[in-house]
Amino acid sequence: MPGRAARSAGPDALVTFGRYAGPATLILSSLADGPKHGYALTKDIEQFAGVRLAPGTLYEALSRLEGQGLIEALASEDRRRPYRLTAVGAHALRAHLADQRRVAEVGLGRLGRNWGPA
């Protein structure tokens, strides 16, 4: 939104994104590699996660991330505007991925013990 003041977000900021938490994590993970505009984000996410974010979902998540100060817009390149990860966004992504890794490790460990190795 015009003139939107980015608010500082804590490390658990992504939890408040509801059903946009997944797309937001993918976007932040993509931006961790460097600034990208909408189409580049879609292609990168498709490549590393096998998920193609639809345009509406991508921009709703971008708008929320920008509103929370987790990403910031850079100057436009023609009609495309790149976004980059902020320090707050990097901190939130790190915390969120660490939580997810703990869950993944517990799940994989239990699967290994009770259902045999993959």
Partner: peptide
């Protein structure tokens, strides 16, 4: 207001 902020880049996408 959303179109004013994101309209151009969204249209490009």
């Amino acid at each position: 207001s959303w179109r004013e902020r994101y309209g151009e880049e969204f249209a490009e996408l």
